[in-house]
């Protein structure tokens, strides 16, 4: 047990119960070696709730219908919000320079929808918006960018649009100067770019929550599957496949792969970037 959680009672087997419940409801996976870390992160919530035992808190999360908002506190406590602008930019570049022109030529004037599905504090969707703006796409096509995260705290910060210098460490300087204004030690994103994003809170494992967002042409879901179990990844990707608009492009992180799972997406390489494209549905002649 780590130091922060030492003032709480942890009955035998309770950490496994909590770990499994969190996996079931959020998809986030904590192996045995990470259970102490999990308990450590939850300890303030247990104390804040007035409990002295993790078991009581487990029952609260599992059975008390009135405690649904508590799950938001759990997501806030567990979510990893360390990200930065221009991260893994190859995929964004491939979208802007190659995939989008083809898509636009084929789909005509229908609005293009891009969803950043685990946007943390907003660096990814804003990076996409900057890249699209640099390429003049907002003048050429109707583009909607939606961004969501399971953590309300992260979305609150994203909605403010103010970032520490560390978040801009990979952004080329000329873009920083063009799109950000310095406020004290921090940087504020330009209003016209920030206003292009529609922010919301959504748990990827809950199909009802993602349904309105996932009917997009392009889904970015990067650096989140590293925290998910294979089962959870499979569930989420199956949901994506169900909602995404054909042809359906899915971008996941460089450290992640869907190849060992059986999914409805094929891996393809565009401009040195890996992109998953939804497999076309095979229509049996018996259906005619």
């Amino acid at each position: 047990m780590t130091s922060r959680s030492q003032n709480l009672v942890l009955p035998e087997g309770t950490s496994t119960l909590i770990r499994n419940l969190i996996h079931e409801r959020t998809g986030m996976s904590f192996d045995n070696g990470k259970c102490d870390l999990l308990m450590d992160k939850l300890s303030p919530l247990v104390i804040e709730r007035g409990f002295s035992s993790y078991l009581d808190y487990y029952y609260l999360l599992k059975y008390d219908e009135t405690a649904r908002p508590e799950w938001q506190n759990v997501m806030n406590a567990l979510s990893v919000q360390e990200t930065y602008f221009w991260r893994e930019i190859d995929q964004v570049r491939a979208l802007v320079q190659t995939i989008l022109p083809q898509h636009h030529a084929q789909q005509g004037k229908s609005p293009i929808r891009i969803w950043s599905a685990a946007c943390a504090t907003g660096e990814e969707p804003l990076t996409i918006a900057i890249a699209l703006n640099e390429a003049g796409w907002f003048e050429r096509a109707s583009i909607q960018i939606m961004a969501s995260d399971a953590s309300s705290k992260a979305i609150d910060r994203a909605a403010k649009g103010v970032y520490r210098p560390r978040a801009l460490r990979s952004l080329p300087l000329h873009l920083r100067d063009r799109y950000f204004e310095q406020t004290g030690a921090d940087w504020r994103i330009r209003n016209d770019i920030h206003a292009r994003i529609k922010w919301s809170i959504a748990n990827l494992i809950d199909e009802r929550q993602i349904a309105p967002l996932a009917s997009a042409d392009f889904i970015f879901c990067r650096n989140v599957f590293i925290y998910f179990s294979e089962d959870a990844i499979r569930r989420v990707v199956r949901s994506f496949a169900g909602f995404i608009r054909p042809p359906g492009y899915l971008f996941i992180g460089a450290a992640e792969s869907l190849l060992r799972l059986s999914t409805d997406f094929n891996l393809t390489e565009v401009d040195d970037a890996f992109v998953y494209v939804k497999r076309p549905r095979v229509v049996s002649t018996m259906e005619y």
Partner: peptide, 11 residues
């Protein structure tokens, strides 16, 4: 104001 900090101090 932080309940965890108060709890740690009390303990």
């Amino acid at each position: 104001d932080d309940a965890s900090t108060r709890q740690a101090a009390v303990s």
